[in-house]
């Protein structure tokens, strides 16, 4: 179940992106293009997702532990800091350039589109560049805590 449950969740997530049309970069860019022919669909996707996930997470809060794991893995960081702001700003620029964020990009690998494969390879390089950079910083200042912890 520890493998089947995340596999099914990935399938449901993928179905949601497909049905909502968010796998299509053009649809995402049409939402971000508020000065053009604006398409508010992405806002509806987020609102519907939140309408389900907000009460659903409350439910999870009330159970002591997950069905198939020993504990919940909640993000540990709180408080807004510079890495959060800078990281979100850079991500937004990349997202706005082509209309792809990680979920739709990875799902679209199924189409074997060369552009998607190139994007995902570049994205992997970006992730690894960040991790190598943080690792260097950590070795340079061994006493200080690691700055970036993934929220989600």
């Amino acid at each position: 179940m520890r493998i089947i449950a995340p596999l099914l969740c990935g399938l449901i997530f993928g179905a949601g992106l497909l049905i909502s049309g968010m796998v299509q970069p053009a649809k995402v860019l049409a939402f971000l293009d508020i000065f053009g022919a604006w398409d508010p669909s992405l806002a509806v996707v987020m609102a519907a997702a939140l309408a389900v996930s907000a009460p659903g997470f409350r439910l999870a809060d009330r159970s002591a532990r997950p069905w198939f794991a020993g504990q919940y893995f909640q993000p540990g960081k709180s408080g807004v800091d510079l890495p959060l702001l800078a990281g979100a700003a850079l991500f937004g620029i990349g997202w706005g350039l082509v209309g792809l964020c990680p979920g739709p990009a990875l799902e679209s690998l199924a189409t074997l589109s060369p552009g998607i494969i190139g994007f995902v390879a570049a994205m992997a390089c970006g992730v690894m560049a960040h991790d190598v950079w943080q690792q260097r910083r950590l070795t340079a200042q061994r006493d200080r805590p690691l700055v970036s912890v993934t929220d989600g």
Binding site: G87, W95, F119, A122, A129
Partner: peptide, 8 residues
Amino acid sequence: AGLLVGFG
């Protein structure tokens, strides 16, 4: 764009 999304 891919580099920015990954790093960001």
